[in-house]
Simulated scan of single mutants.
Amino acid sequence: MERPPPPAIDISRQDGACSVNLQGDWTALALAGCREARGLRAQLQKLAGAPDDTRWSLSGVTRLDHIGAQLIWQAWNGRMPAQVALNDGQRRVFDRIATLRTDGWKKKMVDRFNPVTLLGARLLSFFAQLAVGVTMLGQLTFDLLRFLRAPQRGPWREISANIYNVGYKALGITALVGFLIGIVLSYLSANQLRIFGASTFIVNILGMAVIRELGPVLAAILIAGRSGSAITAQIGVMRVTEELDAMSVMGISHGFRLIMPRVIALGIAMPLLVAWTDLMALLGGMTAARFQLGISFAFFLRQLPEAVPVANLWLGLGKGVAFGMLIALTACHYGLRIKPNTQSLGEGTTASVVTSITVVILADAIFAILFKDVGL
């Protein structure tokens, strides 16, 4: 296999003006095989600090990828020289890098503490994030339509991998927590019901509380803390390692390849996890009721369909679908907002978990208001 021509810099002077001609392949492969890559970086930075009448030419560059263009763009300190000769393809690469890197070249000013300014900044940040969230939701709608139009080209591997990571790997923790919550709720309820001689109503309390409210909310909070943080961290690491920038340069949609598979996976896995959590919580409640009140498993299972209408089960599963999609959208939103540094990665992951849990509780309150007359 023929080695690519190494990157080189040709400097010429004519009538007091300096001309810089870049030659060879400015690609990741060529730069990796070039022993003088560090010297080229230092030489580029030195030439970029020359007077503005320096003429740059990339006509001798045979190949240019994102890595090479980024090296040149950093040497130019994030702005195009006044005199530069580029072809259309090279200009498009630099335009993409300029768009992706706009925030990175701006100097940030730190103001003194001012409550009014701080409140205004928080409000502006909230509305900006709300606008981004609405945009993400609209983009998700278009991605779903594109997926339905050509399902054979969809990201099936990403969807199945996320279902495995989010659903199957969470069975253990959801089963354990659900079982223990069922035991605790049963013991607390049994102590009160025994006083009034209404021990059999433990079936009504456990069934309604677990199937309608506790199961969906408990599963959603566990998934928000476990899988929501993992999604944010995964996308954040892709930002730190510049994989997101590379995807944008190659024309790969973040929404279709990163956001939509996770939303679909959580929308499928969450109702299954809700049903699993309900089952384990009821099992724990039945176990505690057997030892505390002497109620057999057979009586509990026979009375459960009469005590809890089936509409509550469908309502709980519907909550699971909504909670899963909200968690995925929130996690992806904060993952894409992470800046390329480790501090932002930690702060974004923490904010993602807190916001996901808050959104789940708010959505549950809205469900309780909208369906207050269903299944009662």
Rank of each mutant, 00 (worst) to 15 (best):
257 R>A: 08
333 H>A: 12
107 K>A: 15
305 P>Y: 03
302 R>F: 03
346 G>N: 07
19 S>Y: 15
339 K>P: 04
29 L>R: 14
240 V>M: 15
183 I>G: 00
82 A>F: 00
320 G>Y: 01
149 R>A: 15
84 V>R: 07
24 G>V: 05
219 A>D: 03
157 R>S: 10
167 G>I: 09
127 F>N: 06
307 A>G: 02
181 I>T: 04
341 N>I: 11
251 G>P: 07
145 L>P: 09
299 F>S: 15
375 G>L: 06
32 A>G: 08
313 L>H: 00
6 P>I: 04
76 W>T: 02
353 V>P: 12
117 T>P: 00
29 L>K: 09
252 I>K: 00
3 R>M: 11
248 S>K: 12
225 G>Q: 08
270 M>G: 08
149 R>M: 13
269 A>I: 01
291 F>M: 11
124 L>N: 07
85 A>L: 05
284 G>L: 05
316 G>D: 01
182 G>I: 13
159 I>R: 05
66 H>N: 11
331 A>E: 09
139 Q>V: 02
128 A>V: 04
207 G>Y: 01
282 L>A: 04
137 L>A: 11
17 A>N: 04
279 L>G: 01
365 A>G: 15
243 E>R: 00
376 L>Q: 12
109 M>G: 02
325 M>G: 11
75 A>F: 11
75 A>K: 09
275 A>E: 06
291 F>N: 04
98 A>V: 01
10 D>P: 00
342 T>Y: 07
152 Q>V: 13
259 I>T: 13
20 V>E: 03
308 V>L: 11
95 D>H: 00
196 F>I: 14
355 T>Q: 05
40 L>V: 11
323 F>V: 02
258 L>Q: 06
278 D>R: 10
103 D>Y: 03
81 P>I: 02
10 D>S: 02
271 P>H: 10
180 L>A: 02
172 G>N: 07
360 V>Q: 06
77 N>D: 02
312 N>M: 08
69 A>D: 12
111 D>F: 11
51 P>W: 10
136 M>A: 09
352 S>R: 06
46 K>D: 15
167 G>N: 04
331 A>G: 09
70 Q>I: 09
246 A>G: 03
210 V>G: 01
240 V>T: 05
119 L>D: 02
3 R>W: 08
218 L>A: 05
246 A>R: 14
18 C>D: 08
206 L>Q: 12
137 L>T: 14
368 A>K: 09
102 T>M: 07
363 A>N: 04
176 L>T: 01
124 L>G: 13
129 Q>K: 09
338 I>N: 10
165 N>C: 06
102 T>H: 14
199 S>Q: 14
161 A>K: 03
160 S>L: 13
229 S>T: 14
171 L>G: 07
127 F>R: 03
244 L>M: 08
148 L>C: 15
194 R>C: 01
339 K>V: 12
175 A>C: 05
49 G>I: 03
206 L>S: 07
237 V>E: 09
177 V>K: 07
117 T>A: 14
165 N>D: 00
186 S>Y: 13
33 G>H: 13
352 S>V: 07
63 R>V: 00
59 S>K: 13
56 W>V: 10
91 R>Y: 10
176 L>G: 00
184 V>L: 14
356 S>C: 12
90 Q>F: 00
182 G>R: 10
160 S>I: 11
335 G>R: 07
39 G>S: 11
217 V>R: 02
96 R>D: 10
